[in-house]
Amino acid sequence: MNNMDWLYDERTQCWSLQTTMTIGEYVDLINDAHQTRGALSGQRDVLTTTTAKRIRARMVADIKLGAVLPPVVIGAVIEDDVFNTLPIDEADSVNEVLGDSDLSSLSIIDGMQRTAAMLEAQRDDPTVSNRRLRIEFWLATTVRAMIYRMLVLNTGQVPWTISRQLTVVFSPLLEEIQRNVPDLAKLSTPDDRGRRVGGGQYASDDIVELYIAFSLRKTAVDAKEAVSDEFSRLDFVDNLSDTEFQAQFYEALGLLARLDKSFSRYEPKESTRYTRGRDIFGGQPARIGFIVAIATAVLGRPGANRLAEQRGTRLTALKEAQNSLIEKLDGLNEADLAEFIRLDVLREVLDRRVGQVGRYERAVFAEAFKVLVEEKFALDSLEPCWRAN
């Protein structure tokens, strides 16, 4: 019997599909989706407090006794050609709906604890696999729509953190970044850190922090802590409501990678701190400072957001200005490039004895790249940037 119930969300251009399947079918679907990330390890952690363990143990016992759980919510970013065929009213299974879509795009938006309980109950009692449960699938073509849907309609979880919500769509977000930012030379993951040996190479969790910093336009972003500032939360949601926001972040990331590659051409033999061109963007303080400077120029200061048309115009102007600078840098020999980036001045500024070194470095780079952006990248050297703080 066909049990597919379709609704179209016009606000985020997503399809909501509610259906039922057996616990065995659900577990197989999720395990297949996450086999490249160690089954469910890529999702939000299972709660480990004493209270949570007791509740989950009760849930496991209830599942064995035939309890019907609340619907689990699954998100999927699918290809345009698959999305354009929806809804498929005659489909008898989710596999028919997803077609040849990459299952690694599936994410558990709501139901991680229930999933853990189902897995435990299935291990204890194999007959649990035949029990049925309700599933709601949210199908979208962009990760922006999926993130917006989670942050606006699924923020009742406590504690609420932007990072925690982004972690749910971590894999499809990074896949979309790699497709849309060709200047990224390498994107390392927590399981494959690697070593940065050139410009345009970054860690995936650092990219997520840049994503948050770009939206909030703040250098003091701790992706591991809760975002308690209600205004920051609203800024993030407001930006995601703009269909161009995601593309603007990718453009900003591309600007960072291109400038990083140009600076990285300076490669002297000594390898102490901040002696090579790639050392500038080798740390998160400079990357955050650059991204925030671009975001502020394009999006506007927090609380004073610019119109979509203004954002597009400003971003285009910044790209043209930076391209002119990069053309100039690429025409310099190594000695002239060293004279332009003035790492000796940067080292002197950063070597000052201060408390809270990490916060000081972020402030230095934030002011530095603010100057670079305000001067439309038209500088004879970076010395005015390094001395701005």
Rank of each mutant, 00 (worst) to 15 (best):
N2Y: 00
C14N: 03
Y26E: 05
D28V: 05
L29W: 09
T36W: 13
R56K: 15
R56T: 00
A57G: 04
A57N: 12
V60N: 12
L65I: 05
L69S: 08
E79A: 08
D89E: 10
E90W: 07
D102N: 05
L106G: 05
D110R: 10
E120S: 13
Q122A: 15
P126C: 10
P126K: 14
T127R: 13
V128R: 12
L133Y: 00
L133N: 05
T142C: 01
M150R: 04
V158D: 02
R164W: 00
L174T: 05
E176A: 06
N180T: 02
D183A: 13
A185L: 09
A185S: 04
S188Y: 08
P190I: 09
R193S: 12
R195W: 06
G198C: 00
L210K: 11
V221W: 10
K224Y: 09
K224S: 07
L234P: 01
D238Q: 12
S241I: 00
Q248R: 15
Y250E: 05
G254C: 05
L259K: 10
D260W: 04
S264Y: 07
T272I: 08
V292Q: 06
A293H: 01
A295C: 02
G303H: 14
A308H: 15
L315C: 12
A317H: 13
D336F: 04
D336E: 14
L337M: 09
G355V: 03
G358H: 03
R359M: 05
L382A: 09
W386N: 07
A388L: 04
